[in-house]
Amino acid sequence: MTSTNQTLNPAGGAVAPPAGLRPARRNAGRAAVTRRKWYEIIGLTAPAIVVYVMFVLVPMGFAFYYSLFRWRGVGPPTDFIGFDNYVMAFQDPIFLDALRNNAIIVFGSLAIQGPIALGVALLLNRTFRGRTLFRLLAFVPYVLAEVTVGIMWKLILTDGGTFDALLRAVGLGGLVQPWLADLDIVIWTLLFVLTWKYVGFAIILLLAGLSNVPQELNEAAQIDGASWWQIQRHVTLPLLGPTIRIWMFLSMIGSLQVFDVIWVTSVPAVRSLGASATMATYMVDNGFFARLWGYGNAVAVILFAISFVAALLFQRFLLRRDIEGAITRKAN
């Protein structure tokens, strides 16, 4: 194959300005290498691409197709209704409640987990006895299964449960609330549980980011007479930027799609009243339980569209420098 390329190439070489045999041969070699590289890329990624197409793209296409039908999952879809399902979703006050709840979780997670994780990570980045233990403890909630966490907090926060007993024991009985039953409180309760569950992930990510901050910079700043706070503010934080932004991105996407903790911790009645529904729980409640399969697919497509646009915007404006060349074109 290589030899054919080489014999063919002098023709190309003739087009080029007075190039000798050597540059031509070098070009030929480079083309072959490029071609071989592409075969390699195709060969190695083909299985992944096939799986991706079969289990991601094709189902997405189907979801969109089904979303255009009034279909209850019995027999093939035949009742085409265009975008009516989408209109119906945005006219349902419960779906709008779900959107609002997702917004609360997205911004609430960023606003609460960010500072906590940063503080804890900075503390745990210093050397002290038992540091590994504390790191481990901070990470435990994240390792627990969502369903376990959901059931655990449901039992703790239930009426007259452990949490209420604790409040009463320390003389704060007046603060006791129906944490999971009050329709105005429940979403904040769930935000708390989600924070507890996922803050460990932010901490571990930031700790990893911190370990990449060169020690020399700290030392240099120290020699210049910078205090610990100044070093964190002017040296560590800016260098931690990419890690923080990646965490924000993951947290945002996770919050938009959050399902399991909400599903387990909050009962169906409270969800169906909109107090604790998220887009994902709304999708399952309507798609499977109300047996509105076409409608459920429409909600899935909306959820996907919102997550996709949010991801694109985030990458465009915040992750731009971090992933330069990968998705955006290289500046200059």
Binding site: L183, S272, L273, F289, A290, R291
Partner: peptide
């Protein structure tokens, strides 16, 4: 009544229980 009507009916009844 079937799942679709049944589910909508149950949701609306629960709303009476919730007072709204």
């Amino acid at each position: 009544f079937g799942s679709t009507v049944g589910n909508a009916m149950n949701d609306a009844i629960v709303a009476i229980f919730a007072g709204n």
